[in-house]
Computed example of a mutant assay.
Amino acid sequence: MNYILVFILLLPLKWIRKLFHKKEGRNLVIQTAKIGDFVNITPLLTHLQHSDALLSRTVAPLAQHDDTLQQIWYIEDHKSGLLAKIRLALQLMNRYDNVYLLHPNNLNLFYAACCNAANKRFLSHYRRKWYQGLFYWTADSVVQHEKNTLTLENYLKLADPTLTKEHYSKHATQPLYPLAPVPATLQRQDGIRIGLSISAGNQAKTIPPSVWKRLFDRLADLPCLFYVFGAPSEMHRLQELYKVVGERENIISLIGAIPLEGLPHAISMMDFYIASDSGNVYIADAVGVPVILIYGPCCVEEQRPLGDVLLIGPDHIAPSSFVFAALYQFHHPAEQLYALDSRKLDDIYAFIAARQPKRLCQTKPH
């Protein structure tokens, strides 16, 4: 509610400054969520060709290597107090002619509403509050997002209602930023390279070690090399995994070894990627790697990889975590949400085997 009061106080200045607004055709895209959400806005960025963006600093290593982006504002740089937020609002006010609001929380709505753009298009969703109506009143058009509609597609519809997910591919960096030097372990050719995320930004979406053990055991007769990706803070997750599965030669830790800007290149060297709903599965999808998504409580109708993907979900448990209504604890234990029974394990095995016929033939005894 405080942002509404500040917006009302700024209205006289906003109207005066609008008289001096010069049209230059500049675009502003506002999406301050994390890695997976950034990857999902890249089709819109490609369609717009050149844009400025208000983003989270979390995605800076990717965004700064995106040739569709020009000036980037980071939301964290302007959160030190109300005056800092007002200064950013004044900087954005007369700069843009087209504003696309993809992440409509209160602060982002405030920034978008302050802009004197002639064309302002806002996403609205199932958690919209009544008091946000004043901000939406400033929009020229609104796209309604529901839990059963695809976020990526609705982002595109902000620019053009006829666009669908088939029109543009995702990217993580554009062009693909090279990882240098490439670790020798990533250059191995003696197995099927499978990337893993054993944790997620939302820790409640972490797949338990016991589930990974069932997967490793089912794939034991395939020449798999399991590459564990993650930030340095996830090392304890690897130790927990080792306690259950043991330290195996074919489990290769890359935790803390790959900078975020080089992560898309590193993941592009995988043959497959397996994870719960995390940023890395969207990076893998963006670089054309087949994905096995063990999605647990998440709603895959709303957001999911769109390429070559195998979706593995829980039995008889309705989705409870959504893009704009994320939960950080669930009614069901992780062992049940991410459980892999024999049928699901067979599906994963078949998905991998069907895409690696040459490599599998080379490993068979003559």
Rank of each mutant, 00 (worst) to 15 (best):
R128G: 04
D140H: 15
A33Y: 13
A180F: 13
K147N: 03
S169Y: 09
V182M: 08
G246D: 12
G195Y: 00
C361V: 09
N2L: 15
Q174T: 13
I16E: 05
R218H: 14
R343H: 10
T151F: 15
N98W: 02
D37K: 01
D221Q: 08
P208R: 12
I352G: 03
Y155E: 08
Y349S: 08
D346Q: 13
V300M: 13
I312F: 10
Q203L: 13
Q31A: 10
S278K: 02
A53P: 00
T151N: 13
Y96Q: 02
V211L: 03
A63E: 07
H78W: 15
R128D: 14
P104T: 07
F7S: 12
I8W: 11
W130E: 06
L102K: 05
L310R: 12
S253L: 13
A204W: 03
Y126N: 04
D221C: 08
I348M: 13
Y227A: 07
D285P: 00
L254D: 06
L28W: 05
L327H: 12
N106G: 15
Q356T: 13
A257G: 02
R304D: 04
L82C: 08
A284M: 04
G246A: 11
Y96N: 06
L88T: 07
C114E: 05
G256Q: 10
S210T: 15
K344P: 00
V291K: 12
A117H: 02
N27S: 01
D341E: 09
R26C: 00
T185A: 14
L293D: 07
I258Y: 03
P259N: 11
V6F: 11
K170G: 03
P333V: 14
G246T: 08
I192P: 03
E24W: 04
P209R: 11
P161Y: 07
I35N: 04
F135E: 08
L101H: 02
F324S: 00
D271T: 04
L82Q: 13
S169F: 09
A204N: 06
A266W: 07
L311Y: 15
L88Q: 06
L9N: 09
A172P: 00
N119T: 09
D341T: 09
L152V: 14
